[in-house]
């Protein structure tokens, strides 16, 4: 059991992207329950240890991540300013995230401005991707969020996005 846990820990440490329970099970040829128990055990251990990082569940997998309070020093080590998105880009991203798959015209309508520039930027940053074409005249492009979006924003899946505030029906 302790050996299994160490083995799972080694894989989690060496993985480049969040690694899922299924993938761990596949590689280690262990029953899913055993893998899950090992991962949850590790997660709890790192939590209790109160160290500089924890084992986070993100984008359908598990990954070691540093705690937010140490971001300033790490950025200093990396020599990078905080990367961020403009408010306009964040708005566009939010609309895509909640309404996907969505065509550009609908994003424009919600935001009341042309979202072309911000949308292009989000595609280049690989937060948004083309997911298909809508079956209406002109076959406009449908946009959706990427797996990278989940990774960047620390989300397990889209269902983890907080519910959008009600706006549908007007109160009398």
């Amino acid at each position: 059991m302790e050996h299994d846990k160490a083995l799972v820990e080694a894989l989690l440490f060496a993985a480049e992207t969040p690694i899922s329970l299924d993938r761990l099970r596949e590689i280690l040829d262990m029953p899913k329950e055993a893998v899950q128990a090992a991962v949850l055990d590790l997660q709890r251990e790192y939590q209790e240890r109160r160290g500089g990082f924890t084992l986070e569940e993100v984008a359908g997998g598990f990954q070691f991540r540093t705690l937010p309070e140490y971001s300033a020093s790490i950025r200093k080590m990396k020599g990078r300013g905080p990367s961020s998105l403009t408010p306009a880009a964040l708005e566009t991203l939010a609309v895509v995230a909640y309404r996907q798959p969505i065509v550009k015209a609908d994003i424009d309508r919600v935001r009341g401005v042309d979202a072309g520039g911000t949308l292009k930027g989000l595609v280049e940053k690989k937060l948004v991707r083309i997911v298909g074409r809508k079956d209406v005249p002109g076959k406009p492009i449908l946009y959706g969020t990427t797996r990278r979006f989940l990774e960047i924003f620390d989300l397990q899946d889209l269902a983890e996005l907080p519910t959008l505030r009600e706006f549908g029906e007007l109160a009398e």
Binding site: Q63, F64, R65, S71, P82, S84, D154
Partner: peptide
């Protein structure tokens, strides 16, 4: 949210 590469970092 805790952004990767802004607030939290992976190896």
């Amino acid at each position: 949210r805790p952004w990767l590469e802004r607030d939290v970092f992976k190896r």
